[in-house]
């Protein structure tokens, strides 16, 4: 198994674990934990393709930075997403005194 295949397999299993957390957890904050795991799996793919790409495919004079660049923006957006997600969860908690997703079945604030 090549290193690239190993990294991609690792990232697909990590993504599946995140999906499992999103599907099975009932606490809204732990669903967010699953989403973070899935985002990380995607980032891992970018770094994998950057680290194990063939040098001949690119112009040697130019630095190849698309992978790390994408990961940097993705990390910034993930942080923003976590901040807004947790703020929403805390607001819901203030209304209903619970973060259990099974109990949050009414749109009436």
């Amino acid at each position: 198994m090549t290193p690239l295949a190993m990294m991609l397999t690792l990232s697909s299993v990590l993504f599946a674990l995140g999906l499992l957390a999103v599907l099975t957890r009932r606490n809204a904050i732990l669903v967010l934990v699953g989403i973070e795991l899935m985002l990380n799996a995607a980032n891992l793919n970018f770094i994998a393709f950057w680290a194990f790409d063939s040098p001949g495919a690119h112009n040697a004079a130019e630095p190849v930075l698309s992978g790390p660049m994408f990961v940097m923006f993705s990390i910034a957006i993930a942080a923003a997403e976590a901040a807004v997600g947790l703020a929403i969860i805390l607001m819901v908690f203030r209304h209903t005194r619970s973060t259990d997703l099974n109990k949050l079945d009414s749109l009436h604030g």
């Binding site: 090549t2 690239l4 295949a5 991609l8 397999t9 194990f52 790409d53 040098p55």
Partner: peptide, 12 residues
């Protein structure tokens, strides 16, 4: 992931 990446890539 395991099958599609059999292309020989050089770790550089």
């Amino acid at each position: 992931a395991a099958s599609g990446s059999n292309i020989k890539l050089i770790p550089w």
